[in-house]
C-alpha cells in the first residue's frame, strides 16, 4: 500500500466504518420491528390458540425438529421444509397429526424415517397449530412452490 495511506487512517476507517454501519443496522432493525406486526402473524399468538401454539413451539424445540427439517429454509437439510407443510398437507392440521402419529418405531429399512415420538393428542394438536401459525407468516413469496 502507498506510504500516503497510514496506519492511523486505516484504524480510523475501521472504527468509523464499523460504528456507522452498526448504527445503520440498528436503525434498520428498529424499522423492521415496527413493520413486523403486519407480517409475522402475531394475531395468531395473541388469539385464543396462543398458548397452544406456544406449547407447539416448545415441543418443536424440545425434540430438536430443526436438527433434520428446515423451517422457513433454516435448519438441517435432511428432511422436508415445514414452514409450508400445513398448506402442502391440504390446509389440514389433522393430516399433520396423522403423519407424525404414523411413524414406525424402528424406522423403514434402508430409508430415512422420522422417529416415533409417542405424542398424545394434545401435543399433536399443539405441533400442528404451531406449523399452521408459521405457514401464515408473510415470507415475501417463499418458497417458490408448494414442495418447499
Amino acid at each position: 500500500m502507498a506510504e500516503a495511506f497510514t496506519k492511523s487512517m486505516a484504524r480510523n476507517i475501521f472504527y468509523g466504518g464499523s460504528a456507522f454501519f452498526f448504527l445503520l443496522f440498528l436503525a434498520l432493525t428498529f424499522d423492521t420491528m415496527g413493520q413486523l406486526p403486519n407480517r409475522d402473524n402475531r394475531a395468531a399468538l395473541e388469539g385464543e390458540l396462543g398458548p397452544v401454539i406456544a406449547q407447539g413451539k416448545a415441543l418443536w424445540e424440545n425434540n430438536d425438529c430443526i436438527g433434520c427439517h428446515t423451517l422457513l429454509g433454516e435448519g438441517a437439510y435432511f428432511a422436508p421444509e415445514l414452514g409450508n407443510v400445513y398448506k402442502r398437507f391440504g390446509n389440514s392440521t389433522d393430516a399433520i397429526k396423522g403423519f407424525i402419529m404414523s411413524r414406525p418405531k424402528d424406522g423403514i429399512p434402508g430409508r430415512r424415517s422420522m422417529p416415533q415420538f409417542n405424542f398424545n393428542d394434545e401435543e399433536l394438536t399443539a405441533l400442528a397449530e404451531f406449523l399452521k401459525y408459521v405457514s401464515e407468516i408473510n415470507t415475501a413469496g417463499w418458497p417458490p412452490n408448494i414442495q418447499g
Binding site: R39, L72, E74, A140
Partner: peptide
C-alpha cells in the same frame, strides 16, 4: 438472512 423469514 432476512430475505424469507417474515422480515420486510
Amino acid at each position: 438472512h432476512f430475505f424469507w423469514i417474515g422480515t420486510p
